[in-house]
Amino acid sequence: MHEGEFRRVLVVDAGDNVGTLIDDRTDLLAHSGGPVEAGVPYGHKIALQDIACGGEVIKYGVTIGTATKPIAAGAHVHVHNVSELDE
């Protein structure tokens, strides 16, 4: 099913290291830039490249959080591996 099809990912700013899945087809395992972790829901983010533990998570060209563990390209980026920025 969906052979050769990619999940749609929206990247807002050229400097972003995460993109947003705007595609309901959670069984597709790739987007045009690489792999996608299975089951990540619509509206959630994936890493566009490897992000080191402690690294900045960047969306809209702005740092929105800090990685709390290493995040591989294509992995789900969310509250389980990102914390709020320190104030």
């Binding site: 947003t20 829901p41 619509y42 509206g43 959630h44 983010k45 998570v57 969306k59 809209y60 702005v62 740092t63 929105i64 959080g65 980026v77 969310h78 509250v79 990102v82 914390s83 709020e84 920025l85």
Partner: peptide
């Protein structure tokens, strides 16, 4: 406010941090 935002509903929808939520509104 900072403790309860983003809300559970926001998080289920894919928002991860308060900065991310605020950026969306300010956009």
């Amino acid at each position: 406010y900072r403790g309860v935002n983003p809300t559970a509903e926001n998080i289920a929808g894919g928002l991860t941090t308060l900065v991310e939520k605020s950026l969306g509104a300010v956009a």
